[in-house]
């Protein structure tokens, strides 16, 4: 498997990178972890004439809480997320998903932000971000904009990131002081894309749900935010009946297709079961 020829740029600064993107637009493709892009290039499903390798730009590899949110830089590898103390202690939905991303060797290279930009509807991070109401920071020579994840994910393998923009960071809001979350993934084997993935997040105050997030993987043209299920949870106290209702609503929000992984009915029912299990697990292990 042999990629087509391209011109290679490895800018040393963010400014250089943005200038290259401004100059080349759609001809340029950003290379971060490369774990989605390079396989596509090897299969010649992608043949960008220009590669902008951002790996030599300093300062893009930090995980930090700052200004009321968690900030994950464009070069933060999945490996680092898996081993991050702040994520393990404060962002349980992310912590649960991290070890399920692809496989351990791929996680050493693949990046969180790169995965979001790839916008694979079977990608796990999109659902996690939907559940957590995250956003993506896009920078260009013209300036910076913060794009809520729901607006960022635009369709299968398409985002609203412009060709001259670089996604420099992802942001996740502070979870508050009483919260819980998890990620459940039905995969046929390690390294498989999700047949169904479910991200859940709950913030509570004195037993009452103050914020709920549910994201669904692999059951639609993009990752799906199960808004009705979230709304049903907010303001209630977690009970079996409420969980079943939220799970039912989440299953209704799913729009799966029948394929080799299973029928649409199957996937929808797994969404129901997983949302219920995820909420139960979250309710059982709150961080306070």
């Amino acid at each position: 498997m042999f990629p087509s020829q391209f011109t290679y740029h490895a800018p040393a600064t963010l400014g250089e990178a943005l200038a290259l993107l401004a100059e080349h637009g759609d001809d340029a493709k950003v290379l971060a972890g490369g774990q989605s892009l390079i396989p596509l290039m090897k299969l010649r499903f992608a043949a960008p004439p220009i590669i902008v390798d951002i790996n030599r730009i300093p300062g893009l590899d930090t995980i930090a809480e700052e200004g009321g949110s968690l900030r994950v830089g464009a070069l933060v590898r999945n490996r680092a997320i898996e081993r991050s103390d702040v994520i393990t202690s404060r962002y349980p939905t992310m912590a649960a998903a991290a070890p399920m991303i692809s496989d351990p060797v791929v996680r050493n290279q693949g990046t969180f932000v790169g995965s979001l930009c790839h916008a694979d509807p079977q990608g796990d991070w999109g659902s996690v971000m939907l559940a957590l109401d995250g956003s993506v920071v896009a920078r260009s020579v013209a300036g910076e904009r913060v794009i809520p994840i729901g607006e960022f994910l635009d369709g299968p393998f398409t985002s609203t990131l412009r060709a001259d923009e670089l996604a420099v960071e992802a942001r996740v809001p502070d979870p508050g002081s009483e919260f819980a979350g998890t990620y459940l993934k039905l995969e046929r084997k390690v390294g498989d894309f999700a047949t169904v993935g479910v991200a859940v997040f709950l913030a509570t105050s004195g037993g009452t749900v103050t914020k709920a997030g549910i994201g669904l993987t692999g059951v639609g043209a993009t990752n799906i935010k199960a808004t009705a299920a979230e709304q049903a949870l907010v303001g209630g106290t977690v009970s079996d009946a409420l969980i079943e209702e939220a799970a039912r609503l989440a299953a209704e929000a799913a729009d799966p297709r029948t394929d080799i992984r299973g029928s649409a009915d199957y996937k929808r029912d797994v969404v129901r079961v997983y949302v219920a299990r995820g909420l139960r697990a979250a309710a059982a292990t709150p961080v306070a």
Binding site: R188, T195, R261, G262, S263, Y266, D269
Partner: peptide, 8 residues
Amino acid sequence: VLSSRVWE
């Protein structure tokens, strides 16, 4: 024997 087949 995929999980989907068991369920079905």
